[in-house]
């Protein structure tokens, strides 16, 4: 597909928000810029026809994540800063640019965006899920079918990760309950 106006402006918006997050010196300002970034990216998921990912990103990425950052900020320190932006360190920029160029060298070998014959979209696995998910699981949403049925153990593992994160957070903070 060619770049639509809405997707182009969303991509510019998230990249500007990301640069703002990276350079804002005040931590609270950076957290707010990151929340705007998450919201922008959740709309990009909708444009890319991934409503499940978009909803999760809006609820979890923009919602819960921001709350976690704000709670952490309330329990630590947010110094008044003399300047709005941090100064850019060019040595690190050069290192990151080298990394980005190495990643960028792989871009020409990727299939074009939206190509129906690309390995992921046209591949056997995708076609299997799309044609059999409803028959085998009685769930119309193929994402839910794969998440809860075909890759159910994966989701169980995810639940284990969330549980361990809760246990670790409690033990690191030396508390017995979240209050």
């Amino acid at each position: 597909m060619s770049l639509s106006l809405i997707e182009g402006s969303l991509l510019v918006f998230v990249i500007v928000c990301a640069i703002g997050t990276a350079l804002l010196k005040n931590t609270l300002a950076a957290v707010i810029a990151f929340a705007a970034y998450s919201l922008g990216i959740s709309i990009i998921w909708l444009v890319l026809q991934a409503p499940d990912v978009g909803l999760t990103e809006a609820a979890v990425g923009a919602g819960i994540m921001t709350i976690l950052f704000l709670i952490a900020l309330a329990n630590t320190v947010n110094r008044d800063t003399d300047r709005l932006f941090e100064s850019i360190r060019w040595r690190t920029v050069a290192f990151v640019a080298a990394f980005v160029l190495v990643i960028g060298a792989t871009v020409p070998s990727l299939p074009a965006i939206g190509d129906p014959t690309a390995p992921v979209v046209g591949g056997e696995v995708t076609q299997y899920y799309l044609s059999n998910a409803y028959k085998e699981t009685q769930v119309k949403n193929a994402v839910t079918a794969v998440l809860a049925a075909y890759r159910g153990f994966d989701t169980l593992g995810e639940a284990v990760v969330v549980f361990s994160a809760g246990v670790v957070a409690l033990s690191v903070l030396r508390r017995e309950v979240f209050t």
Binding site: Q49, G114, D115, V121
Partner: peptide, 9 residues
């Protein structure tokens, strides 16, 4: 995962 003209799964 995207394909041109594709609908949500």
């Amino acid at each position: 995962a995207y394909r041109t003209g594709g609908n949500p799964p």
